[in-house]
Write a protein that binds this DNA or RNA. Sequence first.
DNA 1: AGGTTGTCCTGGCAGC
DNA 2: TGCTGCCAGGACAACC
Length: 279
Amino acid sequence: MPELPEVEAVVRTLRPLAQGRRIRCVHVFHPIATKPQSASRVALQAQGRRIRIVARKGKYVLLVLDRGLLTMHFRLAGQLLWFSNRRELLKLANQAENGVHVDVAFELDKGVLGFADRRHFGRVHVWESADDSPGLRVLGIDPLSRDFTSSRFTQLLAGSKRSLKDFLLDQTRVAGIGNIYSCESLCHARLDPRRHANTLKPQEARRLHKAIVSVLARALECCLHPAPDFRDPDWWFQGLENILRAYGREGKPCRRCGQPIRRVAQGGRSTYWCGRCQQ
DNA sequence: AGGTTGTCCTGGCAGC
DNA sequence: TGCTGCCAGGACAACC
């Protein structure tokens, strides 16, 4: 599932391909991908616009247009695709044989950008301004930004009584962390995911802040080498499993102490942690 | 206002 | 082996 590091790697790869280009034509093959906005609204508002900036906010990809903006969110399984031209797009998109699933495609003045999510959780939306997007408006601090300081983070922790795991998943506090990197950060910081945010000592809060920064930086490095290849519809980030210490490792030995990694459900999703190292 | 719950989808897999 | 049924997972609306 794409979280901040994966989305950041996608944005850095997309930027040289799309920034400065004009959107000639929009194809909405699966209107579910623009819900609740209508396909025609998305097409009409994007068509003819120039992409001024390719950026990321939390887990959103932003295409800032010369008028308004376009957001893409991958949720669990969304991805970007790249086609040489319209002919290649129409030959491959959603064909029964050798078909590539494509939900929305943007014909640029050079190349075609595709958005695909066969599970149809991912979304493509258009907005007059960033303030019009409910998802963007409420986003908290970006952990890769300068604003993400230890003291600011400590303040946020003190203001919440939720569990650390739920706190980290809350995009309105810190934006971009999902299930994987919340588990990894807590593992790195040696903190029990079930502890409540406002119970951390200052030194523990600093540890968690440092852990988040370092876990995300390491994952981003991994996501950039090799960088995403939008031309290969089967491409996915390689080697991430190797850097994970807790996520998805239930029953396997903790890399620090050897104790089996445990799993519990928190807020309806799985949390992985080491019962010995993380207190 | 902060916190919690239900909903949206479908691939993949457990269980028969 | 083949089929059915169940559920994870991120954002967000709707509730408490």
